[in-house]
């Protein structure tokens, strides 16, 4: 309400301005906070198929004894390498059928056809996104950057299993890797 005393009015105004300015600053910060929040959200929901980019530490023998022999899931591996690089990136077993709960190995090769050393990072993506939540990797070249010397072909093994809790209606899923160049000294922001 309008105050008669202009000094008091000024003070009251300043108080609200200060509060609103604080809200503005907080919302600006919130805009940036959305970045880590988004990652957390993706990890929880499988949004956008960003399969979790680290080894599962909490792997217990229990997880593996629960092999679901009643069904097999078709898993496809797709490899992309970012255009503009002299790499040949391929999945040696593009399609495998696995029982949920069963440990499995698949192999990938990266060939550097140039003569210069390449530092690469593979970025995973799973479709359908929810299925990514049930794909547990225990060993993967995608956990860290890889150094590939010029004219070298390197074979990598990825060890994984599917959680037996994988929803029954998912009987086909795809794991895609896109290979990007990184400069050897920085580590990529990994989820």
């Amino acid at each position: 309400m309008l105050k008669r005393d202009s000094n008091a009015q000024q003070k009251a105004n300043n108080k609200i301005v200060a509060r609103l300015a604080l809200v503005v600053v907080c919302m600006f910060a919130f805009g940036f906070a959305l970045v880590p929040l988004y990652d957390v959200f993706c990890d929880l929901t499988g949004l956008n198929g960003r399969s979790i980019q680290r080894a599962d530490a909490g792997l217990t023998a229990d997880d593996l004894t629960q092999v679901d022999n009643n069904r097999k899931v078709k898993l496809e591996f797709v490899s992309f390498s970012k255009a503009g690089h002299q790499w040949r990136f391929s999945a040696l077993e593009p399609v495998v059928r696995v029982h949920p709960g069963e440990m499995q190995n698949v192999r990938f090769t990266i060939e550097n056809t140039s003569s210069e050393t390449a530092f690469v990072q593979a970025i995973p993506s799973v479709s359908p996104g929810q299925a990514g939540l049930y794909l547990h990797k225990t060993e993967c070249f995608c956990f860290e950057q890889q150094k590939i010397e010029g004219k070298q072909k390197v074979e990598f093994v990825m060890r994984f299993y599917l959680d037996s809790a994988l929803p029954k209606d998912i009987s086909q899923m795809t794991l895609a890797y896109t290979l990007y160049a990184v400069d050897g000294n920085t580590t990529a922001r990994v989820n």
């Binding site: 956008n48 797709v78 993506s125 479709s127 795809t174 895609a176 990007y180």
Partner: peptide, 8 residues
């Protein structure tokens, strides 16, 4: 079609 990710 998002770069770096797959959709189905």
């Amino acid at each position: 079609a998002n770069p770096g990710f797959i959709n189905e």
